[in-house]
């Protein structure tokens, strides 16, 4: 912490909190203060980062194989559970958002010239800083409308098709325009329903490796329109 960091008392409290030493009432008060104070949060994270260095003196110990099996069973065991767990952090809001999207598409987007979307998805960041609505027609056309956010400066947005455990397949780099249309490769079309679409941050022109290399910025599940 340099210059204008938090005062000494806050700095100490952040350290005590990071060590887990504050009594319950003081810990709660600290947590409240930290939620409202980015500097205090940074002071806490600095301690967290530094104290984690102490773990270097801890001898690694290989856990028994059964632990990994249990983790895999918990995360990937039954198919329904896997999806619920794997994407648990966004699924709640997504269901509501998808219903809304379906309503919007139902009302506004069906014109005589546009094939009726069979499937839709809202590909959204958790903080909704990036939102892309996707609608898919049986002929393979995937229409995208970006309603919030954009690629970072000097970077590109790349769209990925993810089905179950398979490696993500690129559907292409999104143009800078708000609206775009991509064609879903024929072999993926039968599997669009239930797939997940994700947008990652990539260098201009897209991922050089064929797999996502940057942050995953937004995710959305494909469902019936």
């Amino acid at each position: 912490m340099s210059g204008t960091g938090p005062n000494e008392d806050d700095m100490i409290r952040a350290g005590e909190y990071a060590l887990g030493l504050l009594p319950d009432d003081e810990a709660e008060a600290f947590l409240r203060d930290m939620r409202a104070d980015a500097e205090l949060h940074a002071a806490y994270l600095a301690w967290v980062e530094e104290f984690a260095g102490l773990a270097e003196e801890v001898r690694p110990e290989r856990p028994p194989e059964r632990v990994k099996k249990k983790i895999q069973a918990e995360l990937f065991g039954a198919p329904e559970r896997r999806r619920l767990f794997g994407f648990g952090w966004w699924s709640g809001g997504l269901v509501a958002a998808l219903m809304l999207v379906a309503l919007l598409f139902g009302r506004d987007f069906i014109g005589p010239d546009v094939p009726e979307p069979a499937l839709v998805a809202e590909i959204a960041a958790e903080d909704r800083g990036l939102v892309i609505n996707a609608s898919y027609a049986e002929n393979g056309a995937l229409r995208l409308e970006r309603s919030a956010g954009a690629a970072r400066e000097g970077r590109a947005l790349e769209l990925w098709f993810i089905e179950g455990d398979n490696a993500p397949v690129s559907l292409g780099v999104l143009p800078e325009t708000r609206e775009a249309e991509l064609t879903v490769p024929e072999e993926l079309r039968p599997r669009m329903g239930g797939a997940v679409l994700a947008v990652s941050d990539e260098p201009p022109g897209g991922s050089p490796t064929g797999a996502p290399t940057g942050d995953v910025l937004a995710v959305g599940e494909v469902s019936d329109a």
Binding site: M34, R35, D37, A38, H41, A42, L45, A46, E49, E50
Partner: peptide, 17 residues
Amino acid sequence: TLADPAPGPEALAIAAA
């Protein structure tokens, strides 16, 4: 608190040694 930063996460350059 690890996952849910206070407002202005961009400002949170951690000054950790």
